[in-house]
């Protein structure tokens, strides 16, 4: 029995490792299979936290129960579909309002899930839609172009987007209206640190950080985040700041990829 178990483990592990030879195809197949379910789960994700909040509130549950009984199932489904279309419509309208399509050639994609251990997300578009590694990914909210990250892995039908807050991410930025330039370093868990800021510049909480074209990592002028804490140390030749990104991953549904 023990021998059989060891043989099973060795054979199994070897098989899984041998799949690395066709890693892209294997991932593509699984992502294509899971994408429709993942999209639905992701779309309902925002409501889950509210559900947890209310789970111990009796009044909330009674009210919710009444509501659910009174609404016809078919109508609810239709309503949900319309709601999704409305959100997509608002998202695209905002993009139109800020002339996003005039500035860049864009592709539209829907988020399907988040990576377990990194600040990266997967989207439902891949190389078959013209996506390539290194392309910038943005969102349009409140008439602003907000930087989300860049494409780090492209498969035929899906792609991975490494967020600007990922630990592997670093790029040049400037603080709006302060003429102060620095380097943004991802810290993971949707946090970022702004480093190499000249000591003579006065940086304050609430300052807005935007991308610079230097290094050709991201286009110029995209909103990166807002300064939440400034750290000035006499022993260091530069000042640092904690930066919070403009996007809230939990609320995101769709993104734009800058093709050109």
């Amino acid at each position: 029995m023990k021998k059989r178990k060891i043989i099973f483990v060795i054979v199994g592990v070897s098989l899984v490792f041998s799949l690395n030879l066709f890693q892209a195809q294997v991932r593509d197949v699984f992502h294509s299979l899971f994408a429709p379910v993942q999209k639905t789960f992701w779309a309902t994700g925002g409501n889950v936290s509210d559900l947890f909040k209310g789970i111990f509130k009796k009044d909330y549950l009674v009210e919710e129960n009444k509501k659910l009984r009174s609404v016809n199932q078919e109508l609810l489904t239709k309503l949900a579909e319309l709601e999704e279309l409305k959100k997509e419509n608002v998202f695209l309208r905002e993009a139109l309002e800020i002339n996003l399509a005039e500035d860049f050639q864009l592709a539209f994609a829907t988020i399907t899930g988040k990576d377990f251990f990194q600040d990266s997300i997967s989207i439902d578009k891949g190389s078959s839609d013209g996506l390539e590694e290194g392309m910038s990914v943005i969102i349009a909210e409140q008439k602003q172009k907000i930087l989300l990250g860049k494409i780090s892995q492209v498969n035929k039908n899906f792609a991975k987007v490494t967020l600007i807050s990922d630990k592997t991410s670093s790029f040049d930025v400037e603080i709006l209206g302060k003429e102060a330039e620095g380097l943004i370093l991802g810290e993971g868990s949707q946090k970022m640190r702004l480093d190499f800021l000249p000591r003579d510049k006065i940086i304050e909480e609430g300052d807005v950080v935007v991308s610079r074209a230097l290094g050709d990592v991201y286009p110029k002028g995209l909103l990166v985040g807002v300064v939440t804490e400034v750290q000035k140390d006499d022993l260091k030749s530069f000042q640092q700041a904690e930066v919070s990104p403009f996007f809230n991953l939990r609320e995101l549904r769709n993104v734009f990829i800058i093709l050109r």
């Binding site: 592990v13 899984v16 490792f17 799949l19 890693q23 991932r27 992502h31 251990f117 990266s120 892995q153």
Partner: peptide, 14 residues
């Protein structure tokens, strides 16, 4: 876990 992570396939299995 391997399928939905970015690393090498098999690492999480091990």
């Amino acid at each position: 876990l391997d399928i939905f992570s970015s690393g090498l396939l098999g690492v999480w299995v091990v």
